[in-house]
Structure formats: structure tokens, C-alpha cells
Computed example of a mutant assay.
Amino acid sequence: MARLFHRFDCPCCDPVVARRREVIRAGLGGLLGLAAMPVAAQAQAVAAGGARVVRIHRVQTGDSFEGIYWRDGRYDREALRKLDVVLRDPSLDETTPMDPRLFDVLFTVAQRLGAGDEAYEVISGYRAPETNAARARQSRRVSRVSLHMSGMAADVRLPGQQAMGIARIAANMQIGGVGLYRRDGFVHLDCGPARRW
């Protein structure tokens, strides 16, 4: 059974404060997402009521999620809970609330690539601090202050897409951090400040 941390365990996650943040994020995310999409995709998203779909397959666990995570101007809480479980730290079976803006990044990149029907293969999602520290000891390429620990990052592949192409599109969009791990064949995407490595 996954060890769950509830969304309301800290004062900043109070339901009233969280709801306000969701409304602001949804509005900003919607504007950024639509601005980054090609005109045809923008029209399709608006015609479909602006619903956003994400498809994720977790490599280590075999867990998957395919569905709408944002509709009618707000995030779907049940979908977010399911995504939290899929992107959990499998080494400790620990779950944390993932930042919904990460899914906006994944959605927007897939749309721009014309790969909206493909499932992301997630190599790494949330990492507990202990897991991240262990990985940082093994490799200099792992940041000791990784956004994976905040539920803001995922290391991904898209079938049929080259890692370099994903990284280039994501970096050009300037909607978060992008790291290309060419040798390992995956891309780090996050919803932090725009940067690349």
C-alpha cells in the first residue's frame, strides 16, 4: 500500500488556499498552453471545451493513466490523485501531490509534437528525498535539490519521438526546465523556471 501524504497536511495546502491557487494556475496554464499550440490544435482544444488529456505509462511499475485531468476551467481532483499514484516513488512506494502544472507541460509538449495520442513512458516522477540523495551519490548528473522531490518533474520518453526532438521543442516553448539525457534516451521536463541542460 502506498504511503500517502494528504494534500491538506500543511497550512499552505488548506482547501481554500489550494482552490484559489488552482483557479490561478488553471487560467495561466490555459493561456500558456493555448499560446504554445499550433493554431489548428488551439481551435480543436477550444472546440472540445478545453479539456486536457495526458497519457502516462510508468516503466518500473507498469501503472498507467489515460484520461482528462483538466476540464471546464479547472483540474480534476480525482484524476490528479490517480496521477499522484502512477508517478509515486516506487523504491519507497511513497506518494506526494504532483504539481498539476507538470501535466500542463506534458500535454503541451505532446500537442506540439503531434503525439497527443501517444503515452509518455515515465522513467522517474516523484522522488522521495532519500531516493534522490541516493541517486545523487551515484551520479553527478542528479541534482541534490531536484524538482523531482517537489513533484514538479518527470523524466520521460515518447514512442516514435527522438529525445533530441522532444528536448528541442520543449526548450523552444520556454514553459519549464528541459534536460536532454541523450545517452539514456530520455528527457527531463519540469514546471519550474525555463532553463535547459
Rank of each mutant, 00 (worst) to 15 (best):
S91Y: 07
T96V: 11
L92R: 03
L102C: 14
P129S: 09
A133F: 03
R127Q: 15
Q111Y: 08
G116V: 06
A110Q: 01
P90D: 09
G125R: 01
E130D: 15
F107G: 00
F107N: 09
G125A: 10
R140I: 13
M98D: 07
R141T: 09
G151Q: 04
I123A: 02
T95R: 14
L147R: 14
P100H: 11
D104T: 06
A119D: 06
Y120R: 10
L102F: 09
N132T: 10
T96M: 08
A134R: 03
T95Q: 15
R141A: 02
H148I: 10
A153H: 14
R101I: 07
T95S: 04
A110F: 06
R112N: 08
Y126W: 13
L92F: 00
L113I: 01
A115I: 02
S150F: 06
P100I: 03
A136P: 00
D104V: 07
L102E: 06
A119T: 06
E121T: 10
Y126K: 04
G116T: 06
L147N: 14
T108G: 10
V105Y: 01
V122D: 08
M149I: 12
L113T: 12
V109S: 02
N132S: 09
R101H: 09
G125M: 05
A134C: 05
D117G: 07
E130P: 00
S124L: 08
Y126F: 15
S124I: 02
D99H: 04
A133K: 06
T96C: 12
E130A: 09
V145R: 13
P129L: 15
G114T: 09
R141W: 10
E94A: 15
T131K: 06
P90M: 00
M152C: 15
T108W: 08
M98L: 11
M98W: 05
S150Y: 14
D93A: 14
A115T: 12
G151V: 05
L102A: 13
A119V: 02
G114N: 11
L113A: 13
S150D: 13
S143C: 09
P97G: 13
A134T: 07
R137L: 03
R88D: 11
T108H: 01
H148L: 15
R141M: 13
R140E: 11
P97C: 03
R127P: 09
E130S: 13
E118M: 11
R140C: 05
D104N: 08
S150M: 04
F103G: 00
V142C: 06
P97W: 12
P129Q: 12
R135V: 04
